[in-house]
Design a protein around this nucleic acid. Sequence first.
DNA 1: TCAGCGCCTGAGAGGTGCCTGAGCGTCAGT
DNA 2: ACTGACGCTCAGGCACCTCTCAGGCGCTGA
Lengths: 225, 225
Amino acid sequence: MVRVLVVEDEELLAAAVADGLIAEGFDVDVSHDGPDGLWRAREGSYDAIVLDVLLPGMHGYRVCRTLRDEGVWTPILILTAKDGEYDEAEALDTGADDFLSKPFSFVVLLARLRALIRRGAPPRPTVLTVGSLELDPGARHCRRHETDIRLTAREFALLEYLVRKDGNVASKAEILDHVWGIDFAGDPNVVEVYVGYLRKKIDAPFGVETIKTVRGAGYQLLPDE
Amino acid sequence: MVRVLVVEDEELLAAAVADGLIAEGFDVDVSHDGPDGLWRAREGSYDAIVLDVLLPGMHGYRVCRTLRDEGVWTPILILTAKDGEYDEAEALDTGADDFLSKPFSFVVLLARLRALIRRGAPPRPTVLTVGSLELDPGARHCRRHETDIRLTAREFALLEYLVRKDGNVASKAEILDHVWGIDFAGDPNVVEVYVGYLRKKIDAPFGVETIKTVRGAGYQLLPDE
DNA sequence: TCAGCGCCTGAGAGGTGCCTGAGCGTCAGT
DNA sequence: ACTGACGCTCAGGCACCTCTCAGGCGCTGA
């Protein structure tokens, strides 16, 4: 079963596209605004996404860019009403895979969508590095200096968050929100505890100190070399 | 060095495109007719091909189709003077990866070409392999070390999904969505049970452990050698 | 120098996720 | 109807993970 997500706020157009795709044998979900589309797309279980640029709540380009930044590489086809050439270039630069300007014919949409799905989500070099530390969120691998490091789910999530902060300081509240979830009601001390676990695994064995405590502000991950 | 082949018979246009691409740092070869373009493209050492449809000697669509039939999956961008919508669909169906109708702007060509190259040539093997494990989705065959392995439909679907993940971790929810279908309402424990079945069939008899459990994240299939 | 606060850490209880064997219903072939 | 293969559910058990707690350390400002 091929699953497609259609993110489009114009009810009529969304319904038309969805019906057409369903008639072609696709399994279609429809979302009507940016944040909701982003949320669904994040689940990562779609084979392709049709994304409008003018969306309530969040611009299509931002949805696209956000997904790519989070390591979601589901093929994305951007729909836009503008047809200036630079828009097209811009769309592709945000990490979209294809582009179609309204008004478009359903036949073209279908052909392009099929081409995207046939091609599939390309395996990208998703490995994040900070100094000698390498993190592969897809494969859930972590290594430093050719040495594999075993991390638990929480440890990995925390480290990934710090890595994506790219050297900036992450406050404890921020970490709690993103790694533990906004509904976490427990002791904020967990963060300190888990930072401790991480230091024991990714710093201490290598004689480095890359997770720095910024007293009163939070934590930051710095390169070791 | 990124190598691009431009197959275009109009001298002026070919020169303009080639010069522009060279200025952008690409290594460009130009071919002026169909058979010659096909011949060069067959060498397979290009990262992308820009292909006109109206060519002396051989139509661009035939060049494209022939290459695909021969197993050459270099990304191809088709250029055409016609702009009827069905032409576009047709171009993509011959196995092209993208499509641009003349007149086009160089900025767009560049953006699209970059997108194609970034994406790379999608590997389309009929037989998937992970280490010594071979999987033929078409024939529904599975073997390891010359030994045929009998799998049930579900087991095969699950294994195929894991293989296609290419070493990345597949979460249980994701597996349920793709292998059992999004409307599956039963016990998520089935995944664990079927992973157990697979391990008994493809790992245990060969003394290897290729299906790894990533606690809190999912499962991943790794090569055995 | 001292008080106070923020951070670190070791120990441990409790919980969750995962594995497995047993067993039931269904369907196709005999 | 019998048999076997298949798909799935269920419950027990284990290992590991997650989080709490409390004592102690060290930085900071008065």
